[in-house]
Write a protein that binds this DNA or RNA. Sequence first.
RNA 1: GGCCCUAUCGUCUAAGGGUUUAGGACGCGGCCCUCUCAAGGCCGAAAUACGGGUUCGAAUCCCGUUAGGGCUACCA
Length: 480
Amino acid sequence: MNQTVRVRFAPSPTGYLHVGGLRTALYNYLFARKHGGKFVLRIEDTDQSRKVEGAVENLIDTLTWIGLDYDEGPVKDGPFGPYFQSERLSLYRTHVQELLLNGEAYRCFCTAERLEEARRNQLAVKESGAYDRTCRDIPPAESDRRAGEGEQHVVRMKVPLEGEIEFEDVIRGTVIIPTNVLDDQVLIKSDGFPTYHLAVVVDDYRMGITHVIRGEEWLPSTPKHLLLYKYFGWRLPVFAHLPLLLNPDRSKLSKRQGDVAVEDFRRKGYLKEAMVNFAAFLGWNPGDEREVFTMEQLIREFSLERVGKSGAIFNIAKLNWYNQQHLKTKSADELVDLVRPLFEAAGFQAIDCSYLGKIVGLLKERVTTLPEFVSASGYFFHDPDTVDEKGKRKYLTDDVIGHLDTFASRLEAAPDFTPHSIENALRSLSEELHISAGRLIHPTRLAVTGTTAGPGLFELMEALGKETVVRRMKSVKQFV
RNA sequence: GGCCCUAUCGUCUAAGGGUUUAGGACGCGGCCCUCUCAAGGCCGAAAUACGGGUUCGAAUCCCGUUAGGGCUACCA
């Protein structure tokens, strides 16, 4: 491979970045970075009826958040722009003229209504719903005249009636499709816009794309693209059709069956590192038993040859695990930065950074997503207003309440308030009382946090501070 | 319906004809650790869709069946 690698992610701007799109974008990105190539973002906005306001901005925002920075694309012009297909209309027209001239494409004057009816009839007798080629043999002179008179038309490609098209796919090997099942695909719509099939071929060629890495849903239409390359006399890129991402019922991943937008997961507090790691492993693996990867490691190890062929179900339980793994690798400072906006949004203002650092340190092995830091942190900011009911029955007996009082007084009088000194105080008290340490530990936790589960008690108490701890222990009576 | 793709534990996957009593991970169950909850450690249940070939030998190659998916628009 001595030619510079150029790949592209070419979404249509319909609103948000789908996790399937994320994986496609990621593989393109990894491939480009691995080979020192360029990663291009191209917006396929040739369907005006599907335009969604703000979709491109949103897409770029999500791509940026997750760390897939592109080399050329919207807001980042390069030598092959513009990167919006809607701004390249004249280019498609020029190229299609060439096809028209060579008789490899033709104008079709059929009305949408007629086509609709014809298709219905064919489907009714179980024929393929392909275009019946009524206009295929209109003489060029007549075609030019009717077009000149302003008659509405589309341009269709002329597909050979017989033969077959064979091509190599990096992931699937040799694929052979007979041409007689191919439709005379519309290339230019009556509104003058190109269809996907024309635009993708023209742009991939004009943008110097060397490897087309896209979803498997494009496999059946690849022969049409190949034909176009042939008609234009252009050199072929390498094709790699990625297996689809699936819903739990094995249908193509879609909205309706839970969250599919990357921004949904971002909002729910998943780390970008986890999203990337997880998406990468849906269809690819390094061939050994390592599972937790950073983007840099993925770039180093990724190869198309190790991409599988079969569809993969998007499994949130595993994403949760990846999130925990990546959470563990983050320092308290990093976590504080990630989590502070969440605390602020929840109404905790002016939080001391070092205090927040302690909190996330104590909690980070006990949560799976970012918002859980907030929901598990109430007692770090205010005294509990209730205590766990089961815990109360189990631990808050009258004698224990007396013990807590004693323990609190001792802590209050002690010079130090470290995990070690607290533990010593507790253990010597339990010895004096001839009770197990647990008989003091659990009630203390309940008094101090209102719950029966949480971080190690002594670290927790230190973080809370002596004053708070003593106050809560002494006022636990109110709950019984 | 037609065409194409796919097929290993519930899920993500490893095993590139012999190194395989099919390995790992998630999830699930148990045990250990332990002040609880996590985390961690150990153990366990759990798969080559089916049928034919080829071969001394098949999860692996070939054919068929079945199942699933995708495509079949003036959507991408």
